[in-house]
Nucleic acid binder design. Structure first.
Lengths: 129, 129
DNA sequence: ATATGTGCAAACTGTTTGCACACGA
DNA sequence: TCGTGTGCAAACAGTTTGCACATAT
């Protein structure tokens, strides 16, 4: 696959210019602002290829959609069960990769997902009580 | 939902008596050995409820299936891109939960997934060269 | 009697794929 | 020209859900 078709570049741009963790459909809508006749299939194909090559991260939080992250460096994802947001958080070390290597496993990607309630929804809950 | 229907107990048993990380279909086949006329819908419903209650863990590794884990304690999952296996590994600490709490996030579940090549597939690769 | 769980099968929906065409080297 | 990427739409498949019936309290 050629490294930078116009479509793929636009998809990467969208991923790099947002801090949400978009779904394929969301990326599709955003890219259409630049390339109105891009197809959803192309978005899926490029997201899959970018994931395979390690340029982006793909994560499932269990809401039925695959989410994508333009930042492929190891970091934590905090998924709020109430509002559905996915928030990034720094990690001091890639303990997952360390644990993997101890088992003779050669890791290339680490995914961290915490499920719970985000700060914002926590404060809303307190006000309700 | 009643805590222990016959079906739900059988599903939990299957999850607790295996070290693979089965899909709903796999659980369905195994449970049918005990309850031949259980339906796939019931398996899905119970797996969803058990996940919701935190008794089991649900994880997506990106192979198109949802995988389930009877061990809900935080631990690492090593997913081999070659053979597709999901291996467990101990973690020294739940660094994910720590990072989450620092952000005002209240975590209830932590999921760790490393992608790469498992020890067995690594040795097979070396032999090929 | 009532509320909850089940079996069955149809429906749903995010994702994949085949094919003809477009584009760059 | 040739190989690769795209647009389009149909197909796919894992999962969900409505409904009538079963089961336990």
């Amino acid at each position: 696959m050629k490294n930078f078709s116009r479509q793929r570049e636009a998809i990467l741009n969208v991923l790099h210019s947002t801090d949400v963790h978009p779904t394929a459909g969301w990326v599709y809508e955003r890219v259409r602002e630049t390339i109105p006749n891009i197809s959803l299939g192309t978005v899926y194909r490029n997201l899959a290829e970018l994931t395979r090559s390690g340029e982006i991260l793909s994560l499932s939080v269990g809401d039925g959609y695959e989410h994508y992250d333009g930042n492929s460096a190891p970091h934590a994802h905090l998924h709020c069960r109430i509002c559905g947001s996915i928030e990034d958080a720094e990690l001091e070390s890639d303990s997952l990769a360390d644990a993997a290597r101890c088992r003779g496993f050669t890791p290339d990607t680490s995914v961290y997902i915490a499920y719970g309630v985000c700060a914002e929804c926590n404060s809303k809950k307190e006000k309700q009580i």
